[in-house]
């Protein structure tokens, strides 16, 4: 280091990156030269403001938990049944006399049962991207949207195995900060279900249903303002139809959907 510290020296000094000897020389220069002292004070303030910025950033990031497969799924994967299941699911499309209304009633009943008796204890936080990847192993192209922008976390998932009367299905449960519950139900599409976003109301519970390719979706919400639910439904519909995630504008719209509406009721 020359007798006059450079700007690099001054920056390294405030970052504690100089050796003791070099640091002492800079300290002497600061003590002797008011201009150098002012420069160091200025740089220190910039560093401090950036440190404060790091502490002030408001967004809360949730650490995802890798999907822990159910015992049934883990066993199936370990003995190579995944491909067979996928083929079976694909073959079941259209094989059931499973009407649109019956399918919708089934989905509604499952939502009501989950709301009535949610998984006890701390529900696992499930990462939707990992979940989607594992779903695709079963040959069922299900879009599991990330609704964190809408204040909803994916906290519940259940694979419903097929039976003689009905196909397999997937129940995704989202929970809001105040405890509202949203179900996205996905399964092979029943006969008669259209691709348009269709709204229904059964026993005062409002829901939506639609088909995207061979996959049917139903969406229900409990404890949520209707206007907010309408916004979420439209965005989820668009995402599943387009097989894409949410862009920035959509995330903002989902976040703002809760503004000016009554808070959710748990």
């Amino acid at each position: 280091m020359t007798s006059q510290p450079t700007d690099q020296d001054l920056n390294a000094y405030i970052d504690g990156e100089l050796s003791p000897g070099e640091g002492a020389r800079v300290a002497r220069a600061i003590a002797r030269n008011p201009a150098i002292a002012a420069r160091v004070a200025c740089l220190t303030r910039v560093k401090s403001a950036l440190c404060d910025l790091g502490e002030d950033l408001p967004e809360q990031v949730t650490v995802p938990v890798p999907l822990r497969p159910s015992r049934w799924i883990a066993r199936a994967a370990s003995i190579g049944l995944v491909a067979a299941i996928g083929i079976l699911l694909l073959l079941t499309i259209g094989a059931f006399e499973w009407t649109d209304d019956a399918w919708y009633q089934e989905a509604l009943a499952e939502h009501a049962a989950w709301v009535e008796d949610p998984v006890p204890g701390a529900a696992p936080e499930v990462d939707a991207n990992l979940f989607l990847a594992s779903l695709e192993r079963f040959g069922l192209p299900v879009q599991a949207p990330d609704l964190t922008s809408a204040g909803l976390r994916l906290t519940y998932l259940r694979y419903v195995p097929p039976s003689a009367a009905k196909p397999a299905a997937l129940h995704l449960g989202y929970t809001g900060r105040r405890g509202c519950k949203v179900t996205l139900w996905a399964s092979p599409a029943p006969d008669g279900l259209g691709t348009a976003l269709d709204e229904s109301r059964i026993d005062s519970l409002r829901g939506f249903r639609w088909r995207s390719g061979a996959t049917a979706y139903a969406l229900f919400a409990t404890g949520m303002a209707e206007r907010r639910f309408s916004v979420i439904a439209s965005k989820v519909y668009e995402a599943t139809r387009g097989r894409h995630g949410f862009d920035r504008e959509t995330r903002i719209a989902l976040r703002d959907a809760s503004a000016g509406v009554p808070p959710c009721l748990a």
Binding site: P5, T6, A35, I36, A38, V46, A49, L50, L53, D56
Partner: peptide
């Protein structure tokens, strides 16, 4: 590259808010 430039402004403009915007 200005070596050790002289800062002639009020230090009060250096804050988390202004730094965030300039970043």
């Amino acid at each position: 590259e200005i070596g050790s430039p002289v800062w002639t402004h009020d230090d009060s403009i250096i804050s988390a808010l202004t730094v965030r915007l300039c970043l």
